[in-house]
Simulated scan of single mutants.
Amino acid sequence: MTLFATLSRFVGFGPAAKISVTRYLNLSKQRRDLSQLTPAQLEDIGVSQTEAIREAKRPIWDAPNFWCN
């Protein structure tokens, strides 16, 4: 059983909260992964090192606008 599943049993989180938490955890992982790419890998995806650092430093709750829909 995952940590979230265990907590949800005790706190009473519903399915919608699970989706939101999962999205934010995935976003956090993606940003962490982005921060670890080499300059050559960043060039391959068309992102500058400055942009990657800026994105990686954004707080977890600062999600893309399309997530709000």
Rank of each mutant, 00 (worst) to 15 (best):
L42K: 00
I53R: 07
N65I: 12
F10L: 07
R58E: 12
G12L: 03
V47C: 01
V47F: 01
A5T: 14
Y24I: 15
Q41K: 05
S48G: 09
S35V: 00
A17R: 06
R32N: 06
R23T: 14
K18Q: 10
A16E: 08
D44A: 14
Q36K: 08
R9H: 06
I60T: 13
D44M: 08
N65F: 10
K29F: 09
R32E: 10
K18L: 07
A56Y: 02
E55W: 05
A56Q: 04
N26C: 13
A5V: 10
Q49W: 02
L25R: 12
P39W: 00
P15K: 06
L3V: 11
G46E: 08
Q41F: 00
A40T: 05
P59F: 07
E51M: 12
T2P: 15
T6C: 02
R32A: 12
Q30D: 12
I60Y: 05
S28K: 11
I60H: 05
G12W: 02
L37D: 00
V21W: 09
A5N: 14
L34R: 05
Q36T: 02
N69E: 13
R31D: 05
F4I: 15
S20T: 13
Y24A: 14
L7S: 07
I60Q: 09
M1Y: 10
Q41L: 02
L3M: 11
T2A: 13
W67F: 15
D62A: 15
I60R: 11
A56E: 04
